[in-house]
Nucleic acid binder design. Structure first.
Length: 190
DNA sequence: CGATTTTGACCTGCGC
DNA sequence: GCGCAGGTCAAAATCG
């Protein structure tokens, strides 16, 4: 049921001190007062909505994620701001095949349902962008065919199951890909 | 000196 | 069944 949403963002080099955080995985918003948008969970789908006070050019803009993605198009909007699963390149869970629901081995073993995952791709010189939460690093791994490592973080709040991993886009090192997984059981600590 | 990071070992699923 | 790749653990090292 959970799907992966790819949001491709451009962030100026003067990256904001805080970029974005996930609020119980339903809304993706900046930590500033300017809410830019939301990702709504609707049944099995995520969809992206621009809020009225979202200034695309001002803050950052969404750009085409790329043609190489087998992305499903959402709705009828012409330009595709994000892709939807179906991408083994980043290994976010296989194809958009319902059979792959249980792809997460640990989730299957523990009987939990598949965790929500949202990936952000943004242009940034710094690797770990402040997203309002406190994280503790627990692993680092080189990924095949990528010159840069992937870093694993867990939410520092005790009992909170949220994880994220951070890596650079292997095709364009100017981009950082941050993948969030799970729902916070608390508000942002900052 | 407690908290966090580092880093290699370990574990598991998957493809062959 | 084996090896690879990705994810996690945990002891040691480092940080503040």
């Amino acid at each position: 049921m959970a799907s992966n949403v790819y949001v491709s963002c451009f962030v100026p080099y003067s990256t904001l001190p805080s970029f974005a955080y996930l609020n119980n995985n339903k809304h993706l918003m900046t930590t500033t007062t300017n809410t830019f948008s939301s990702i709504e969970s609707s049944g099995s789908d995520h969809f992206f909505e621009q809020s009225t006070d979202f200034e695309v050019s001002d803050f950052f803009s969404f750009e085409d994620w790329g043609n190489e993605q087998q992305s499903m198009d959402f709705g009828s909007q012409g330009n595709q701001n994000f892709g939807y699963q179906g991408n083994e390149l980043y290994d976010f869970g296989g194809s958009s095949n319902i059979q792959n629901e249980g792809e997460n081995s640990r989730a299957v073993r523990s009987g939990k349902e598949k965790k929500e995952r949202v990936a952000l791709r943004m242009k940034s010189e710094i690797d770990v962008v402040d997203d309002g939460y406190k994280w503790r690093k627990y692993g680092k791994k080189m990924v095949k065919n990528s010159p840069t490592p992937r870093n694993y973080y867990r939410c520092a709040v005790d009992g909170c199951p949220v994880k994220k991993r951070v890596e650079r886009d292997r095709d364009d090192m100017k981009y950082v890909i941050t993948t969030y997984e799970g729902n916070h059981i608390h508000d942002a600590p900052k």
